[in-house]
């Protein structure tokens, strides 16, 4: 009796499992679109550049925070901030270029640009490093200067 019950339960389990596995074919018996989504070279490049952008912006925030806590000296900060900003700007510019062909499409509902990255350690005010004696004071257009214009935000048309 118990053996028969066990057999029946085993058979029911097997049928249920097979039905679950076969469900995609039962639900769409003759589906025309049976291809897995394959990202093209453009999307792969976009992912790569997005990562570059995020990496550069994240590094900038980390640098700001480390500078604020005293882990990075003023001189080190000035040396590092310029290249990082250029990297971020370059990534943003390339992302813009990639998005541009799609801009010729009918205009979408305008998206409200959200701050990126969201307020983080880097939402601290831009520090004003004190130059060491004898060091030149960075000018307002110096990319390493704290007075450098803020980075453009993603999410909408931008000019660099």
């Amino acid at each position: 009796m118990i053996e028969s019950l066990a057999l029946a339960l085993g058979a029911a389990l097997a049928v249920a499992c097979v039905l679950l596995a076969a469900r995609p074919f039962l639900r769409e018996p003759g589906s025309a679109s049976d291809r897995l989504r394959e990202p093209g070279p453009l999307e792969r490049e976009r992912v790569r550049v997005e990562e570059e952008r995020d990496r550069a912006l994240g590094a900038l925030k980390e640098l700001e925070f480390d500078h604020r806590t005293g882990k990075v000296s003023d001189a080190d900060y000035r040396d590092a901030v310029g290249p990082l900003r250029r990297q971020a700007a370059d990534a943003l510019s390339r992302l813009d270029g990639m998005m541009r062909p799609t801009m010729s499409m009918p205009p979408e509902e305008p998206r409200v640009p959200e701050p990126w990255p969201p307020p983080d350690e880097g939402d601290l005010p831009d520090p004003a490093p004190t130059p060491a004696p004898g060091e030149p004071t960075p000018g307002p257009n110096d990319p390493g200067s704290p007075q450098h214009p803020p980075m453009p935000q993603t999410g909408g048309p931008r000019t660099l």
């Binding site: 389990l13 249920a16 499992c17 097979v18 679950l20 596995a21 076969a22 469900r23 995609p24 074919f25 769409e28 589906s31 679109s33 049976d34 291809r35 897995l36 989504r37 394959e38």
Partner: peptide
């Protein structure tokens, strides 16, 4: 096979089989 050939339904079926195997192992 689904991953190699890019077959969507076969990939979903394989995923469902993995889920079903969890059920069978739980039993």
């Amino acid at each position: 096979l689904a991953a190699f050939r890019g077959r969507r339904r076969l990939a979903e079926s394989a995923r469902n089989a993995l889920v079903a195997a969890l059920g069978a192992t739980a039993v």
